[in-house]
Amino acid sequence: MIAYGWLVLAWNLFWGEFTWGNLLGGLLIAAVVLLFFPLPPVTFHGRLRLWGVLAFGSRFVVELVRASAHVARIAVQPGFTPRSAIIAVRLRVPTDLNLALTAEALSLVPGTLIVEVDRDAGILYVHVLDVRGPAALAASREQIRDLEQRIVAAVGSDDELRLVRTGTVAKEPP
């Protein structure tokens, strides 16, 4: 029911005005969309932890500023050609919510971009800018797992939090 309301609101915002015709059209279009393209259920078994949210937010802002400065330096450095790579990172908590939140946070940071998500295997394929060798690839994977741990610490269940703190990841995909 919430998705229905958001779709009706989005329809009216797309048209730029709220009229009776747009409201009725939005109600009809939202019903058709939800009938023929049902959304998968996203379960949330976690809880919101204030300290985790604050830690995630503050660290995210620091990473955002640092990555922005790094990309800006690359952009203005004369003659420098950055090397990039696409890495596969298997998340320790492969739930839909964790995949979505981790992918969104990564995409917001300059220098990283989600290329693909393997939902069944819980793998994110991430484009990383300015990679200088195998050690940098390993560091990038570790940064992504650290981001996942902070997200789970902010909104995950106790079991998920225990898993990211102590769990090991299966063999990395190539």
Results as ranks from 00 to 15, higher is better:
residue 152 V to H: 03
residue 87 I to K: 08
residue 114 I to M: 05
residue 131 V to C: 04
residue 55 A to K: 05
residue 71 V to P: 04
residue 8 V to Q: 13
residue 167 G to Y: 02
residue 60 F to P: 03
residue 65 V to C: 05
residue 27 L to V: 15
residue 70 H to R: 05
residue 141 R to S: 03
residue 6 W to S: 11
residue 132 R to S: 13
residue 169 V to T: 13
residue 93 V to F: 12
residue 37 F to A: 15
residue 2 I to N: 12
residue 154 A to H: 00
residue 66 R to E: 06
residue 153 A to G: 06
residue 93 V to D: 08
residue 110 P to N: 02
residue 92 R to S: 02
residue 26 G to A: 03
residue 119 R to L: 11
residue 105 A to K: 09
residue 120 D to K: 15
residue 172 E to T: 03
residue 162 R to V: 04
residue 152 V to N: 05
residue 118 D to G: 09
residue 1 M to P: 04
residue 137 L to A: 09
residue 151 I to W: 03
residue 61 V to R: 03
residue 54 L to C: 10
residue 129 L to Q: 09
residue 75 A to Q: 02
residue 23 L to W: 12
residue 70 H to C: 07
residue 16 G to K: 12
residue 157 S to T: 00
residue 18 F to G: 11
residue 65 V to T: 07
residue 109 V to A: 09
residue 140 S to Y: 04
residue 39 L to H: 04
residue 16 G to I: 00
residue 50 L to K: 00
residue 134 P to F: 04
residue 141 R to G: 03
residue 96 D to M: 11
residue 61 V to L: 15
residue 72 A to D: 07
residue 91 L to K: 09
residue 82 P to L: 11
residue 133 G to V: 01
residue 100 A to W: 02
residue 86 I to E: 01
residue 112 T to W: 04
residue 108 L to Y: 04
residue 66 R to Y: 09
residue 126 V to N: 10
residue 38 P to K: 01
residue 166 T to K: 02
residue 16 G to Q: 11
residue 73 R to N: 11
residue 37 F to G: 13
residue 104 E to L: 07
residue 12 N to D: 00
residue 114 I to Q: 06
residue 32 V to H: 04
residue 92 R to L: 11
